[in-house]
Nucleic acid binder design. Structure first.
Length: 278
DNA sequence: ATGCCCCAGGTACTGGGA
């Protein structure tokens, strides 16, 4: 099985590219972020014609997450328990929730499509929101794995954090002055490792960015960021056989500013198309 | 080469992105 995550930066502007890529790359399940539409605006027909069913969580023109899957999706969950909301000038529970998290179960895999809040600037209330959001997500993942340590859980999406210095190649991000590379953001990301939830892509694809800003020739200069990740529980990580970052999707007409990240899994009883050797 | 910002709403401009 091949599963992927991609911040598509508007699915209506990108539907042709996304579906073509899924078919060409034999993708079984795609977690999308920044669909930037409501469910009724989602270009569903193109996905259905290609053999995918959809789970969509979009509230407005902002944010929005979705799954396209060749296999049945069950236990669809919009937002995770404890997920904080945001309203300017206010704190605490009960604030409006944004469309940033969608959970589905596919073939005994528990998958989340996640669009972590941007943070905007050091000292901005959005950064506190981002850190709280990540901590609540970690707590939810902890609870899920405490209930079932064998759960094959994957947290897939745009994390808006560059965890290591090698993940930061855009000179407009300055240590001590910029989001995405600050110590608290990196600590919030690395806190998942303490839960045994690890980046399953980096060991198999150690180099490469997943985002390049549209401005200032960032892609031709390869001045990007690595901020899109698939983090997996031990049971999920045990299934992973390959991973790749599809850099070519940043090329050509009307690309997203992010590229897809693919993880290949070996599932029990799955025909992997390899010849049997006796 | 991959080439100098894009998306949505709404129809001039603003808000958001990273």
């Amino acid at each position: 099985m091949r599963i992927a995550t991609w911040n598509v930066n508007s699915i209506r502007a990108r539907v042709g590219r996304v579906v073509d890529w899924m078919v060409r790359e034999d993708i079984d399940v795609l977690a999308m972020q920044e669909i930037k539409c409501k469910p009724e605006q989602f270009p569903a027909q193109a996905f259905e014609d290609a053999g995918y069913e959809l789970a969509i969580h979009g509230i407005s023109q902002w944010n929005g997450v979705a799954f396209a899957s060749r296999h049945e999706m069950t236990d669809v969950e919009t937002g995770f328990p404890g997920m904080p909301g945001f309203l300017k000038g206010q704190e605490g529970p009960g604030l409006p929730l944004e469309a940033r998290a969608l959970g589905v179960t596919v073939e005994d895999l528990r998958l989340w499509s996640l669009y972590v809040p941007n943070g905007r600037a050091l000292g901005d209330p959005h950064l506190a929101y981002k850190l709280d959001w990540l901590e609540r997500l970690r707590a939810h993942a902890h609870d899920e794995l405490a209930r079932d340590p064998q759960l094959a859980l994957a947290l897939m999406g745009d994390w808006n954090v560059a965890p290591f210095d090698t993940d930061m190649g855009d000179p407009s991000f300055v240590p001590g002055q910029s989001t995405h590379i600050s110590e608290p953001e990196r600590a919030a990301f690395h806190a998942f490792e303490a839960e045994g939830i690890l980046d399953v892509v980096r060991p198999l694809a150690p180099e490469g960015f997943t985002f390049w800003d549209y401005k200032q020739l960032r892609f031709p200069r390869n001045e990007g960021l690595r901020i899109d990740f698939v983090l997996g529980s031990p049971a999920f990580a045990d299934l992973v056989t390959a991973a790749s970052i599809h850099r070519n999707e940043r090329k050509g007409d009307a690309p997203s500013d992010h590229v897809p990240v693919v993880v290949e899994l070996a599932l029990e009883g799955e025909d992997d198309d390899r010849p049997m050797i006796f």
